[in-house]
Each structure stands twice: as C-alpha cells, then as structure tokens.
Design a protein around this nucleic acid. Structure first.
Length: 765
RNA sequence: GCCGAGGUGGCGAAAUUGGCAACCGCACGUGAUUCAAAAUCACGCGUCCGUAAGGACUUGAGGGUUCGACCCCCUCUCUCGGCACCA
C-alpha cells in the first residue's frame, strides 16, 4: 500500500481541475440556484500569508459544501491592486509600481492556487487595469452628477511621511494607519464623497442584513447619530446669529457662555479689536497642533475670550463668547452653548477661566417655544465625516475631472473614459500638496470639451477604498465593455449571499461598499441597496508565541513551507479544526499533527480492501451534524464529527458504499485527498467534487435505547439503559429498582419526581 | 470615560441552548512494536482523598431564581476589541 504523500497528489489535481474547468461558473445552470460566495480580495503585497489562508481555506469549505448542496456557486477572486503600500514598496526598490504590483500578483496567484479552492479565475479582476478603473471613474461621475462628489475646502489629515491626505477612517489614534506617522491637520481643497448625506440610510439599512451584531455596532458607533436641536444666539447690535447644536436644549437656562471652534467662520467677524492680538495668538497656536497633541490635552482646557457677547434666546441674558479647540469644527455647527452645571467639559472650562456656573431647573418646553419664534429647530447630527478621496499620490485611479479656464470644474465625458494613468519616470510624492501627476505637462494640459479653451486635468488620484467599494459588482460581469455590469448579470448574482473577511474592515471597506451600493441603487443602476446579505468574519491568526505575525518579531509561519510539509489539505483542516472560526488564535506547530494523522488514517482505511459492514447509523448522525455545522460556519465541530465517525468505523471494515459517503463528507475539507482516493482507489470516473452531499434519515438517528440519567436532588447517581419513549411511571419504577438509587432514597419520602422525556429523571427527597 | 465581546483541564476547545461539564484534538505518562529512534498501535489523563470500588469538589468571584444553572437575573472583577473633548 502506498503512503499518503500530499505533495504528490495536490498539484496534480489542481492542474486537472483547472484543465477541465471544474470551477468555471456559468451565469445560469438549470435546476440550480445561484449562490454568490465572496471572500475579500487580497492586496498584492507579494506574499500570501497565513491570514489569507485562514480567510480563504475555511471559506472554500463552505463554498464546496454549497456546491454539493446543489447551488450554482460563484466564488470569484481578484486583486486590490492600487494604493499606497504598493507604491511605497516600489519606491523603496526603485521599481515602477505597476511592475512591482503585477509581479506580486503572478507570485501570489501561484500561492493561492495551492489552497485548492473553487475560485473561478476566469472572472479575475485587477483594480489597476484600465478596463476596471474606467468603471471606478464612471461611478465617480455618477456621484458627481448626483452632487455626492464635491471639491470642498476641508480640514483634513495630512500624513507627512506618505505625503498625502487621508480619510478619517485611515487615521488611528492620530496616526497614519500605514506608517504610524503623526498626522497634521491641513485646510485644503479636496474631493470628498458626501457619505454623511447617507448617514441615516446607512443606519436604517442595518435592520435587514444578516451581519454579526458586533460589526453593526461598530458601524453604528462610527456613524454616531445624536438627536438634538440647533439653537440660534443673536449678537447684540448686529444681524449675526450663532447657531449651536445641543442634545440638551432643556438646559439652556444654565448656559453661561458660548464657545466657538477656532476654525469657526464667525471668529474673525465678531472678535473685538482689543482682543484681536490674543485671539490671533491662540489661533496660530492651535493651527500648529497635531491631532495627537489636541487629543493629549483633553484634560487641560485652553481658550481665549473674543470680547463679544450673545443673547441667550431663552432669557435674553448676555453671555460671553469664547474660542477653544475643545469644540470641534466638523461636529454639529462648530459652536456650543456652554452649560457648566450640566456638562463636564463646560465645567472644566468654566473653572479654568472663572466663568459663572449656574444651577437651573430643566425646561422641557423651551425648545417648542423657541421653535415657534424661529430660533430653534430639531436636528440630528452624525459623527461620521465625509469621505475625502483625493490622494496626492501616483498609484491610483485618476479622478476624471478637468478644470477649464472658462467653464470651471467639469467632469470628463463618459466616452473619454478611462482617464489612463500615465507611465511616469518619477512618481515619488512631491510633498507640496500636489500629486506627481501634476508634473506631466503633456498629460495635464488638455482642451475643454465644452469650449475648447485650455484646461487642466485633476492630478490627484482616488483613495484605494473607492476601487474596492464596488468590486463585488464587477465579478458578475467582469469583461463587460459597455457597462460596469449588465442588469441581467447583476440580477443573476447580486446581492452577495455570503461575504467572508476580516472585521478590521468594519468602518472602512464595509461602510464604503454599502454607501456606493446605496448611491447606485438611488440612481437606478441597482435594484438592491445592501451589497452583502450575510457577512461573517474569520479571526486573526497569530504566531506560535501568540503575538501578531511579523517579520520583525520573527514569528512568521510560511504557508508554502507548511504546504510542502503537510499538504494543503492538512492546513485547510487544521484551520477548520483549531477553534471557532471567528476566534482565530495562535498557530500551534504541533496542532496540525492531529489532522495530518487523521488524513493518514483515512488514506490507509480507504486503501484497504473494503469490508462488508453496512451499518450506517453513525453516518446519518454525522451527515446531519456536519451539514448543519458547515452551514453555520462551525467548522471545528464539523471536523470533530468527522474524526468521531472515523474512530467509529475504522475497525469495522466498512463497505465501499460507506467509504464513499465518508469521502463525500470529507471532500469540502480535503479536496485533494478525497479526489485521489475517489478516482484512483475507488475507481470513480467523475470528480468527487461533482457529487451531491449525502442525505440522512432522521428516523435512523434516534436510538431505540437511551442513556437515562437518574439524579437524586439534582446530582447524577445512576445511568440506566432504557427503551426510548417510556412513560413517566415506567421510568419511575425503573429508577427506583436500581440498587444505587435505593441506597440514596430508601426510607425517605419522595417529595417530587421530575422526568424530562428521554433525558433525565430527578428524584427530590 | 462611553460602547461591544469574552473568562470552562497543562493547551485549542465541546456541551442537543436550562438536563451526565470537559466531546474531538494537542501536549504529557505507561506499555507494545524496534538493535535503537522516529512513525504507528493500545491504555491512562480536570482537582483532591483512596490500591480499588467509590466519594467530595470544579465552568473568573459572590449572591439569586430553579427539582436542576457554563447557560437566565443582580453585584463585583479581570482580559480583549472599538470609539474617544462628538456638545
């Protein structure tokens, strides 16, 4: 008998499956429902790591299971190819980002194929391909038409290392998420997508999607809805009004001063001459602060008096107007009424600057009264920021806009898409707030399509997250030259039925994708408004020392090495078996031994001559359990059940029929091993991966004899083999006959007898 | 500070969701096989007492509800994630 040698069989079957287009997905198959199964596409960093494997391998078990259950499963894959990391890596190596990226894609494809997944490579997309990004640009134009893409002067996060503006989502604790450099605040003209216009829709849409609750909560908090009111305060002897946002209009009688954000537009208008010096001084100082500094000063309030006052509209009281950077420019109206008796921050500020603190009674009527006078209105605000998508970098989708001397900002015409990214000798970021594309005169200078005056192209590129905010639509129709995808194919596949990927995308990709989907739906291009019906996350794989895998820590486990040593099937199964999928955890170098041994035992069993044990009770139980477990992504207990089944049948010399069922149950987990045994040992003509998932018979799962647990006062004292479905008095008689039970019960009064059918009897004395 | 998820053997974990806590593995121990090792196979393996039969204890801590609680309720505690001067 030959030995199980994964490296001998895995490559062979991968080639064979590819040759016979086993995983080529048609848009329609008679008698099969379409099922769109999606994993998050990788960034072509050049190396497929265990994290990717952990996402793709168990997800592939699910896809294979769905196929066997009769679905026409599409499981596409591609590459999120634009963006900073590739560009930075290319700069470091003195390579063109394109060459670097495409080289990585080739290398990673090979690695990905070693997983043995059902990916349909014929639908592969690469976001850096003109055929792809033309539609990214087209979507931008749709947003532009709808007034949802705008060039605005915004206070934005500037990363001095990456030399570009970043979206709020890409800044963590005041640092650039890519390079951990402290970001600066800069006021610049940037392209923003008005995601805040969709804040409420994004909140409401969560009702109907099957996503992990925790992920929904993350998004909800990120969008951060608060209900309150806008109230107007008048400045004496002028027509100027200062609007404030408050969630507590009922505290207005306690408002003893107002505070404006330093960036507030009225600051310059209201400041009195005698205060001008101090105010300017303060504004200069805050401008220089980084986000991090501003955050670290939470406890210590700073501020300056403007010399101006405003009337409290509730009682006409004249209260001073201050400036402080604890008031944020982008939240509410950038101005507050301060109620030190009811708010800790206002209190701290009042204490520091000796401002009055007034205790008052709450007034729930005041909002209505002020509303009638036109001085207040109810208002909901959100913490969510608009999505700044301008990047002053080279390796991204060009923003399809031109600036005409006469006509101003104009979109590029659809027929002129794609605006191709030109090849550049020097693509390094300049750091002067301009994209390197600005230096390419022959690319930048064009004629206006409307008036033929000279015009300039927009030279910023788009945030990579725009590319990935719609890629799942393209898979339905990846080669379409006329549309981003045809109506028909969208209808055939979307929305995505099952989406599996990391939770770290909760407030980035997953939010953006929902936003873009809703915009396209509102413009009539989609007839659904949530992209991912079911979403599930895999956990994080750590190094053997329980720390995040990284080269600097020296704890990286190389998947290629593991494939060589144990084979893909073992890694797949180990990842399924190691624990709940959403947990992740450290890679246990010994742990994989367990599944490797298991696969060896399967190999040996099937290679033995089949016996004639046809008992199948254990099989029915296993078919049910494994099927239900995979459906719910409980891969660990599914594998456990397979192991139990093997333990049970291994010594019984099972018949060929039983062996076949066993292999089918194992097939989604170990596609190579099962294929080899199915075709070469059992001599089947067709692939096991075209087989149907076995059926089970519920009646055969229920044993006729049960283990009746007998407790006395809630403690188990005896287990009796008993016939199923006994009546209560029969059980009572049986229990009291037991010698052990007699010992506990004799001479005592039985106060209660509880019997739960086919499970447990409890005698209370 | 606010929001969320958790805490079960030496380790990963399981528990029909209120009904035998620790399935399935890893690691470990003993034995078989071997000249020897690896591999493989068999047995053992929550803690304490006991040669054993058996008994007592045990799901972060404390309380409650219940015939019965890892599961439900209350209080506390620790760990991990997210947000964070959001008016």
């Amino acid at each position: 008998m030959s030995k199980y040698n994964p490296s001998k069989i895995e490559k062979k079957w991968q080639k064979e499956w590819e040759k016979n287009k086993l995983y080529f997905t048609k848009d329609k198959v008679k008698g099969r429902k379409n099922f769109y199964h999606l994993v998050m596409f990788p960034y072509p960093s050049g190396d497929l790591h265990m994290g990717h494997w952990f996402n793709y391998a168990p997800a592939d078990v699910y896809a294979r299971f769905k196929r066997m259950r009769g679905f026409n499963v599409m499981s596409p894959i591609g590459f999120d190819a634009f963006g900073l990391p590739a560009e930075n890596a290319a700069i470091k190596r003195n390579l063109d980002p394109k060459d670097w990226t495409y080289g990585n894609i080739e290398a990673m494809k090979k690695q990905m194929k070693s997983i043995g997944a059902v990916f349909d490579w014929s639908r592969e997309i690469i976001t850096a391909e003109p055929d792809y990004y033309r539609w990214t640009q087209w979507i931008f134009l749709k947003l532009f038409e709808a007034g949802l893409a705008k060039k605005e002067k915004v206070l934005a996060n500037w990363c001095p290392h990456c030399k570009t503006i970043l979206a709020n989502e890409q800044v963590q604790n005041g640092e650039c998420e890519r390079c951990d450099t402290v970001v600066e605040q800069r006021l610049l003209d940037q392209w923003v997508l008005k995601i805040t216009d969709y804040a409420q829709k994004l909140l409401d849409g969560m009702e109907k999607i099957n996503w992990p609750e925790t992920t929904k909560v993350l998004q909800k908090n990120w969008i951060g809805c608060s209900e309150g009111a806008i109230i107007k305060f008048q400045i004496p002897n002028s027509k100027l009004l200062i609007s404030v946002f408050t969630t507590r209009p009922d505290t207005i009688f306690g408002a003893t001063f107002m505070v404006l954000a330093p960036e507030h537009e009225l600051v310059k208008k209201i400041t009195k001459d005698q205060q001008l010096g101090q105010v300017n001084n303060y504004l200069e100082k805050t401008k220089k602060k980084t986000e991090l500094e501003r955050l670290s000063e939470v406890k210590e309030k700073t501020g300056v008096f403007t010399g101006a006052y405003a009337f409290n509209p509730a009682n006409g009281e004249k209260i001073p107007i201050w400036i402080s950077d604890f008031v944020l420019p982008h939240y509410g109206t950038g101005a507050i009424m301060a109620v030190p008796a009811h708010d800790q921050r206002d209190f701290d500020f009042a204490k520091k600057f000796n401002l009055p603190i007034k205790k008052i009674d709450l007034d729930s009527e005041i909002l209505n009264q002020l509303s009638k006078k036109g001085l207040a209105e109810r208002k909901i605000t959100y913490r969510l920021h608009d999505w700044i998508i301008s990047r002053q970098r080279y390796w991204g989708t060009p923003i399809p806009v031109i600036y005409c001397q006469k006509c101003g900002i104009l979109p590029v015409l659809e027929k002129d898409l794609p605006v191709q990214l030109p090849k550049l000798e020097d693509f390094k970021p300049s750091g002067n707030g301009q994209s390197p594309l600005a230096k390419v005169k022959e690319w930048v200078d064009i004629r206006c399509w409307r008036c033929f005056s000279s015009a300039r192209r927009e030279t910023d590129t788009m945030d990579t997250f725009v590319d990935s905010a719609w890629y799942f639509l393209r898979y339905a129709d990846p080669k379409n030259k006329k549309e981003f995808a045809s109506k028909e194919k969208l209808k055939a596949w979307l929305p995505v039925n099952m989406y599996i990927g990391g939770q770290e995308h909760a407030t980035k990709h997953l939010l953006y994708a929902r936003f873009i989907t809703k915009v396209l739906a509102d413009s009539g291009y989609l007839d659904f408004n949530e992209p991912f019906s079911i979403l599930r996350h895999q956990g994080l794989i750590l190094g053997p020392n329980s720390q995040k895998m990284s080269k600097s820590r020296g704890n990286v486990v190389d998947p290629d090495e593991m494939v060589k040593k144990f084979g893909s099937d073992s890694i797949r199964m180990y990842f399924c078996f190691m624990g709940p999928y959403e947990n992740g955890g450290p890679w246990n170098p010994k742990g994989i031994n367990g599944v490797y041994r298991f696969l060896n035992r399967v190999w040996n069993l099937v290679n033995k001559k089949p016996g004639n044990d046809k008992s199948d009770k254990a099989f029915h139980k296993a078919i049910k359990k494994i099927g239900e477990d995979i459906e719910n992504l409980r891969f660990n207990t599914a594998v456990s059940e397979l192991m139990k089944l093997l333990n049970e049948i291994e010594d019984k010399q099972p018949a060929k029929k039983q062996i076949e069922v066993f292999l089918k149950l194992l097939a989604p987990f170990a596609p190579h091993l099962t294929e080899e045994l199915w075709r070469k040992v059992l001599k089947n003509k067709k692939s096991i991966h075209l087989e149907k998932w076995p059926e089970y018979d519920q009646r055969l799962i229920e044993e006729e004899m049960i283990d009746l647990v007998v407790q006395v006062n809630g403690r188990t004292r005896e287990i009796i083999k008993a016939r199923r479905d006994l009546k209560e008095n029969e059980v009572r008689e049986l229990a009291l006959k037991s010698e052990k039970i007699k010992r506990y019960v004799s001479g005592k009064e039985i106060r209660k007898f509880i019997y739960i059918s086919n499970k447990i009897a409890n005698i209370v004395i």
